[in-house]
Design a protein around this nucleic acid. Structure first.
Lengths: 84, 84
DNA sequence: CAGTATCCGCGATGATACTG
DNA sequence: CAGTATCATCGCGGATACTG
């Protein structure tokens, strides 16, 4: 599970790991449009932008938590599934 | 939410709705390989095949239930999200 | 640092026809 | 009824280069 505090773009990138810069941006824009993520721009140099969940985003995060737990509980079995 | 009893291929197709025959088969085979779905073949004419969840499948279904509830609870807001 | 812009391949999916 | 087989398309996402 990811931390819940606001994260800067670079932090997010490192935290998520296996995602290209392009896709991370596209996803963030989409989540923002959907009202799940809030984007806060700080007018300064160097640029600083923080992303955080909205209340709506947190509600979805909560709803997905059991699925995350299931994934952890069944990691071995899941990883044993062959690629078709 | 879908019913949980065994369903025949045609029933599944009608129940799910917007899915091509091809994709339904591919998805079912994949779910079967993953151990989430059980496929029971009845040797008779006309052919009869029933699909049902395994215990593993039910556990995933349970883990996804809260997400389903969230979706229902937020249907209006979700449908208001514009296509990008 | 936090993005944009552009090009491009390839796999996912649809459409259609056929079968035991 | 319950699939399979084949072909064509299309847009997702990777790679790379550039910018305020």
């Amino acid at each position: 599970m990811l931390q819940d505090g606001p994260l800067r773009f670079g932090e997010l990138r490192r935290t998520v790991g296996a995602i290209s810069e392009r896709m991370l941006i596209l996803q963030l824009r989409e989540l923002q449009t959907a009202g799940l993520v809030h984007r806060e721009v700080y007018q300064q140099v160097p640029p600083k932008v923080e992303y955080s969940l909205t209340a709506f985003g947190r509600s979805l995060n909560d709803a997905m938590a059991p699925l995350g737990t299931w994934g952890e509980d069944n990691l071995e079995r899941i990883e044993a599934i062959p690629f078709e």
